[in-house]
Simulated assay, not measured.
Amino acid sequence: MTQRTDVVELLEAQHARIRTLFDEVARTAGEDRRRHFHDLVRLLAVHETAEEEVVHPFARSHLDDGETIVGQRIEEEEKAKQALALLDDMDTDSPEFLDRFAALRQDVLAHADNEERYEFARLAEVADKGRLESLARAVRAAEALAPTRPDPGTDTALKNVAVGPVAAVVDRTRDVIRKAVG
């Protein structure tokens, strides 16, 4: 993924990557599916944490009815985090996984569309290019410290800051172990 300087471009590029990973998981099997799924889980966890720490607080304070817009996105994100947590340790080739994965895919893609329409497009209306670039840098910094697993219940910046660094170390250690074992 190329480096994006604008937060809206950055997040929309990540959404495109998320869509591609959903497709990869759906069309593969075995070790390939497992690898694509873990890539998807990592990207979703990091992406959502950065949004919760950087984008949502900005949207709350700068968008008309920002509280409502962000509240709806957080409800969607929490539902996805819970589904991801259940799927994370399942056999990726099992029928139960595939059914739950299909439902997750539909929910996450609807969530991404809602973000792009109701939150991201409006960010570009209220922030100048410099602010959008500054937000992109903040998103990248938050992603560097974000957990790589979904953490249901960490739907605010304060909770993410408290849980994030410890969860990130645990998650990244688990990632290394899975890669070595896998």
Rank of each mutant, 00 (worst) to 15 (best):
T2L: 05
T2F: 07
Q3G: 03
R4K: 12
T5H: 01
E12M: 08
Q14H: 14
H15S: 05
T20H: 07
L21P: 04
E24G: 12
E24I: 00
V25D: 07
A26K: 12
A29L: 06
G30M: 05
G30V: 13
G30K: 10
E31N: 03
R34I: 00
R35C: 00
H36T: 01
F37W: 02
F37L: 02
H38P: 00
H38F: 11
D39L: 01
L40M: 08
L40V: 03
V41S: 08
V41D: 07
R42M: 05
L44Q: 04
V46P: 00
E48N: 04
E48W: 00
E48H: 11
E52I: 07
E52P: 05
E53L: 06
V54K: 07
F58D: 10
R60E: 15
S61R: 15
L63D: 09
L63M: 08
G66E: 13
E67K: 00
T68N: 07
R73T: 04
R73I: 02
I74K: 12
E77W: 01
K79E: 14
K79T: 11
A80Y: 02
A80S: 12
K81A: 11
A83C: 02
A85Y: 07
L86A: 11
M90K: 06
M90L: 14
D91F: 09
P95H: 04
L98K: 15
A102R: 14
A102S: 13
L109N: 12
A110G: 09
A110Q: 15
A110R: 08
A110D: 15
A110L: 13
H111R: 09
A112P: 01
A112E: 11
D113I: 10
D113G: 14
R117P: 00
Y118F: 14
E119Q: 12
A127P: 06
D128R: 11
K129Q: 15
K129V: 15
E133L: 02
S134N: 05
A136Q: 08
A138C: 04
R140K: 14
R140Y: 13
A141R: 12
E143C: 03
D151T: 07
D151F: 06
D151E: 09
G153K: 09
L158A: 15
K159G: 05
N160H: 13
V163E: 05
G164L: 05
P165L: 08
P165A: 08
V166K: 09
A167V: 04
A167Y: 05
A168Q: 12
V169M: 06
R172V: 02
T173H: 02
T173W: 11
D175A: 13
D175L: 05
V176Y: 00
I177V: 15
R178M: 00
